[in-house]
Amino acid sequence: MSDRRTICVNINGKAYEREVETRLHLADFIRHECLLTGTHVGCEHGVCGACTILLDGKTARSCLMLAVQADGKEILTVEGIAPNETELHPLQQAFQDNHGLQCGFCTPGMLTTLLEFLDENPDPTEREVREAISGNLCRCTGYQGIVAAALDAAKRLQAGT
């Protein structure tokens, strides 16, 4: 006898209407109900940052929200960052060019976190970048490449390439 609701969430420009248990958290909704497995589930208690998504344009940890709370909201996940099937977003391209990912588990959270950060702070210092990703754990400890990628991406975005 579970508590269920029908919700409609817009993810990466597409509407997903599903009937879900109210206790389902948003990360599991995105992965299991919408089959968008780019959003990763690491710790499920808000420490690792791997499940970071953009909710109405602002970052949030999708494991710390219920799916029903996203009813009627707009979400951007890692799958929605690239402009099309063949091109990467400048931030993603910078990650590829600067070895910003090793195993890739933390990458979706790093990208979504940095999208919001670079939008607000287009010309950051290295220290600011490190602080911005302090809520995202990379267990490959590949932070050097990630920081280099973020700084490179800032330059590319400012140059409009």
Partner: peptide, 9 residues
């Protein structure tokens, strides 16, 4: 307080 992602909520 926490991180930007947690302060948003």
């Amino acid at each position: 307080v926490g991180h930007r992602q947690t302060r948003n909520r």
